[in-house]
Design a protein around this nucleic acid. Structure first.
Lengths: 185, 185
DNA sequence: CGATACTATATGTACATACATATATAGAAG
DNA sequence: CTTCTATATATGTATGTACATATAGTATCG
């Protein structure tokens, strides 16, 4: 389970409320982690209970009051321990591959329609990530001089872009192969 | 959710017991779907309740009696419908990328150790899949003459191999980049 | 003044899965 | 004759997540 650790990572960048964390997840971390708002508050409650975060109630006049969370020393240790330890391999579960595996129940045309739909989704996400990378690089003068912290973050974004590019290529090759075999038979 | 559909796919190849299904999952489908034995029996119960599979009690003298499941017409329709419909994009959840993203809390050496561990796992799985592919191709004379059904299955295996190859390359590039920046600073 | 949207936190509940464990038959090995 | 392994099915329960919904303060727009 990585959610509480990712929360600690974001909070160590900057103390935030649950509401802000939700926005941060949908902005800076969206390419490798998906969350539901309700998970964040529950995770925050648990982290506080365990002493890994502190709470500070901020009274606001222009908006409802908020609870701003800070990482404690215990929380920083929890984060570091997690960063040092390789995660257990997540279970493989790719339903779309299952659809191809058992696609002898449908015809090539339908299969290709399906694959083109997946290709489209891939391409959409690829475009989003590429655009994000362009925006970031435009704000940076010399790529070689990016501080370590941001270099590592760029690396995860680059992964997202490259893996999507790989998938686009694979879908094209797969569709091409299926088409070739359709016309041949 | 894909599990019941994958069960239907396997059963339409050949009627089987839950015990056999479990083995089939760990053999022919292991590169894209992970199951726990307990899920299979519960899924089978539900599929039967819905009329998508029939049960046949086989009394055995050399082994405990077993229940062999057959796909019904309703089940075949359920499978086909699923095959025709693109799945909702699964949530992105890559904890190891989160570890890299927040790796400014640890040093390069520790990070690289961690990445090498992931690379090792990737390589292990890559070897397994490649060996499986070799074994399959050895049993097939002319690659061009594989029937459609098995061509599609080989395609999913090829995906597994290629995506692992991609990851191996990415890890090497990432580690190389991190090393280069370590020595420079 | 009312409608709408944004900020902010919280809970109820269902689902898929993971992990542990129970139970029982039958063959093989020692 | 006991132990071990394989076959075979089943249930209890915890966990992480998803989806829906509740509540309420504040600001803006017409």
């Amino acid at each position: 389970m990585s959610l509480p650790h990712l929360i600690l990572g974001l909070l160590s960048d900057q103390p935030m409320s649950g509401y802000d964390l939700n926005k941060a997840f949908h902005q800076s971390v969206q390419h490798f982690w998906t969350v539901d708002q309700s998970q964040i508050y529950r995770a925050l409650y648990k982290l506080h209970e365990q002493g890994n975060v502190d709470v500070e109630l901020i009274e606001q006049s222009d908006n409802p009051d908020k609870k701003v969370y800070h990482v404690t020393k215990a929380g920083e240790m929890m984060l570091e321990d997690w960063l040092k330890t390789p995660l257990a391999e997540p279970p493989v579960r790719e339903g779309w591959l299952g659809q191809i595996h058992f696609a002898d129940h449908i015809d090539d045309e339908t299969l290709i329609e399906n694959l083109l739909c997946y290709r489209q989704e891939m391409n959409d996400r690829y475009q989003v990530l590429s655009a994000l990378r362009e925006r970031i690089l435009a704000n940076v003068g010399d790529v070689e001089k990016i501080p370590r912290r941001y270099r590592l973050r760029l690396l995860t974004l680059d992964y997202g872009i490259e893996v999507h590019k790989f998938h686009l290529g694979w879908f094209d090759r797969a569709i091409g192969q299926i088409r070739k075999n359709t016309t041949r038979s």
